[in-house]
């Protein structure tokens, strides 16, 4: 198994772990953490694709853009989670379904 196959396996494994977390956890903070894991897999895939195609600079610049977007998503998600905790008193995502009742 060569290095590129190992990296692709790593990307797939991180995607699997992120998807598992996204479906399994009910805490809002952990949902954001699962999203972060998924985005890290995407960044690694972009950089790896740039490396494999011989255009690492393009992969790196796209990776930087994704990292910035990912950080902003984390900040806004954290702000929403803190506000949810203040207003509903819990971080359980099931408590957010108030419109259904």
């Amino acid at each position: 198994m060569n290095d590129m196959s190992i990296l692709v396996a790593g990307v797939i494994g991180l995607l699997g772990a992120g998807l598992y977390g996204l479906l399994a956890v009910r805490n809002l903070f952990q949902v954001i953490i699962a999203l972060q894991v998924l985005v890290k897999a995407a960044v690694l895939a972009l950089v790896m694709a740039g490396y494999a195609s011989g255009n690492l600079a393009l992969g790196q610049s796209l990776g930087v853009t994704v990292i910035v977007a990912d950080t902003v998503v984390a900040v806004i998600g954290l702000a929403l989670a803190v506000q949810v905790k203040r207003h509903l008193g819990t971080l359980d995502i099931k408590a957010l379904a108030t419109l259904r009742r």
Partner: peptide
């Protein structure tokens, strides 16, 4: 779908990261 992957053929870089970004 993706595995196994070939070793890849990294060509010499045409542009630097700073110029690209």
């Amino acid at each position: 779908l993706l595995l196994p992957v070939g070793e890849g053929s990294p060509q010499p870089e045409q542009t630097s990261f700073a110029v690209m970004l």
